[in-house]
């Protein structure tokens, strides 16, 4: 159903992810950022959001449910352990919750792989930045291997230290578990390992994800073509996504991708924020194109 009015959205969490998300929401004609919520007043993140022209509030999820009318979409940019409570509070209101924490509570969505699923669930989980960068390629390569499966898949994410906020640092275990679960789910491969590096290099290194698959008999040209096709799909929402290495040696496929944040206020190296936030906004925009506002949704479900 086409809509003229933008959806009313709110961002919960005013860290690095939350603030970049605000700038992306503000560019979208389908979304209106009505509130940015932090835990406490006078944090740098909330001041930043206010400077961007957003209404801000402290008090966490309480501030979101206090309003008279529920938000159409809430983006959870807090941390994995807090997310379950946020969902419990928002679920009764009919709000679409787009979860950017590695909580594994909601339905995992990677837009180019199962983007349509987002419209069937009210709690959509975006896995992790490493998941968003790796799953499109791994999914394509797993399909290429059919009817067999790769024996093993490994994903190594490297993010610039300055692009990784406190919540992510405290959630490294959840980040690993959630990324591994997503790779298993989207590839069908049981033996999966995820690894995270934070790079202290100055100037900061671009966000990078290296993938290794143990697959007998892969052909390098065919692999390269499938990887590039998957990357082209991702570039539709994250233009700075590119393949930097693609090799096949000794029954092992190796693919590295780097993501630079293009055309935003965040620095170029912060591709980790760019890719997961671009996915979040894309999902909300698709929802905007298909759904009426919260409170009027019962007849559709």
């Amino acid at each position: 159903m086409p809509r003229s009015e933008p959806l009313r959205v709110a961002v919960l969490g005013a860290g690095l992810i939350g603030i970049d998300l605000v700038t992306k929401i503000q560019r979208s004609p389908a979304l209106s950022c009505e509130l940015v919520v932090g835990r406490t007043e006078e944090t740098r993140g909330l001041r930043h959001a206010a400077a961007l022209g957003c209404a801000t509030a402290a008090g966490g999820v309480d501030a979101l449910v206090a309003g008279r009318e529920p938000f159409d979409v809430v983006f959870d940019a807090t941390n994995a352990t807090a997310h379950a409570e946020h969902w419990a509070r928002l679920e009764p209101l009919g709000t679409l919750l787009v979860d950017l924490t590695p909580s594994r509570v909601g339905h995992m969505v990677v837009p180019t792989v199962n983007g349509a699923d987002a419209l069937l669930h009210r709690n959509v989980n975006l896995v992790s930045c490493g998941g968003q960068a790796s799953v499109p390629v791994l999914h394509a390569l797993a399909r290429l291997c059919r009817p067999r499966y790769p024996e093993y898949v490994e994903v190594v994410t490297t993010a610039a230290s300055v692009s990784v906020g406190r919540a992510t640092r405290l959630n490294l275990d959840e980040y690993i578990a959630t990324t591994e679960t997503a790779v298993r789910t989207f590839t069908g491969v049981a033996d999966v390992k995820a690894i995270v590096n934070l790079s202290p290099a100055r100037p900061p290194a671009p966000f990078r994800v290296a993938m290794s698959l143990v697959v007998p008999g892969a052909d390098e040209d065919t692999v390269a073509a499938h990887v590039e096709a998957a990357a082209a799909e991702v570039r539709r929402h994250t233009p700075g996504y590119r393949v930097t290495a693609c090799t096949v040696t000794d029954e092992r496929i190796f693919v590295a991708v780097e993501v630079t944040a293009a055309g935003d206020r965040i620095p170029r190296y912060a591709g980790n924020l760019d890719i997961i936030n671009a996915a979040a906004v894309l999902i909300a925009e698709r929802y905007a194109a298909r759904r009426p506002r919260a409170g009027a949704t019962e007849e559709l479900s």
Partner: peptide, 9 residues
């Protein structure tokens, strides 16, 4: 490139 241990990729 100031790589750290773990960035073997």
């Amino acid at each position: 490139r100031q790589v750290v241990a773990g960035q073997e990729d």
